[in-house]
């Protein structure tokens, strides 16, 4: 008896399911809606909603006496961005992001070129994993490793000492702007850590772009009398450019928004990320924090429009 009842229940369920399925078949838009609505609801409410809240806050201001947020539309907070101390933060951050991006492209290119054109089989897998593992492994731990490296008693100073080159390091550190008391509190230190952390983001798209270059094209270039250097400059580089542009989106954007690396390694001068963090936290000035945060969004907007022209999005 129980068996029959169970079977009846099962077939009723199957019938209901197939009715739903038929309805979906007759109206494919229904299926599409069922697929696309849940993720859109989530991203629309959680993400876009939050972005909107941020944007809204940047048009409010803080009351100087009570320290509370005044919910009145004003551009006062944006005007504050152009005060010398705040404007310095913006300039400094964008300079750092540009320097990191250029350096990452230079260091990444040979790795990507070798992995794309010369590595085969086992080596290819090794190169691939060699880039993927650091990319996905812990960001904080990798930053931490540089704290160990750059520390006064750490391995880098030890290497310089063993090679009797401490004078060279000290001469370098006395250069104003890039130097400092020690590497771990200098802009060079911050720069090195940024380069280290974001490098894999540059290697992968460049490698993907180089893999799409047909070998016959390089052979043709050689047959037409180009020296290897000329081939690289006139054939390979232009074809790799979309990949470099794609990678630069990541290195630039990630450097601009980071607040942890300059906090742990570097001088006391702040970057945008730190300013955002401090204004929203200890200072409790959410409008100014929001206005600061809008800057990278706007810069990235321009950057993405430029990058689209080079075909970077097809290289992602």
């Amino acid at each position: 008896m129980a068996d029959v009842a169970a079977r009846a229940r099962n077939s009723a369920r199957a019938a209901a399911l197939s009715r739903v399925s038929d309805a979906l078949w007759r109206r494919p838009s229904l299926l599409l809606l069922a697929l696309v609505v849940p993720p859109l609801l989530w991203l629309g409410i959680v993400y876009l909603g939050s972005l909107f809240a941020l944007l809204a806050h940047s048009f409010f201001s803080i009351d100087e006496f009570s320290g509370l947020v005044k919910y009145e539309l004003t551009l006062k907070t944006y005007a504050e961005l152009f005060r010398a101390s705040n404007f310095d933060i913006l300039v400094r951050t964008i300079l750092m992001a540009s320097a990191v991006t250029v350096a990452a492209a230079v260091v990444a290119f040979p790795i990507a070129y070798f992995a794309a054109r010369h590595a085969r089989g086992r080596w290819k897998a090794a190169f691939y994993l060699g880039v993927m593992l650091p990319l996905w492994s812990s960001y904080l731990v990798r930053v931490y490793s540089w704290k160990l490296i750059l520390a006064k008693e750490g391995i880098l100073n030890w290497v310089f000492e063993t090679l009797r080159l401490t004078w060279l390091l000290e001469a370098y550190l006395s250069v104003p702007g890039i130097g400092g008391n020690s590497l771990s509190v200098s802009w060079t230190g911050t720069f090195l850590v940024f380069l280290y952390i974001w490098l894999p983001f540059m290697i992968l798209p460049v490698q993907a772009a180089l893999e799409r270059v047909p070998p016959s094209m390089l052979e043709a270039s050689g047959d037409l009398g180009a020296r290897p250097g000329q081939t690289v400059r006139n054939v390979v580089l232009p074809l790799a450019l979309p990949g470099i542009a794609a990678g630069s989106i990541f290195t630039f954007s990630l450097t601009m928004g980071d607040y942890i690396i300059p906090q742990i390694v570097g001088t006391s001068a702040r970057m945008i990320g730190q300013a955002v963090y401090q204004f929203q936290g200890t200072a409790g000035n959410i409008p100014l924090a929001a206005a600061f945060a809008v800057v990278p969004v706007v810069v990235m907007g321009f950057y993405l429009t430029l990058a689209r022209r080079t075909g970077a999005f097809d290289a992602l």
Partner: peptide
């Protein structure tokens, strides 16, 4: 829209959520 949360710097996502919560 799907790519945006990772394409924009993490701090943007973070502070957006923070202001939405507040």
């Amino acid at each position: 829209l799907v790519i945006l949360p990772i394409a924009l710097p993490g701090i943007i996502t973070g502070i957006s959520l923070r202001s939405a919560f507040s």
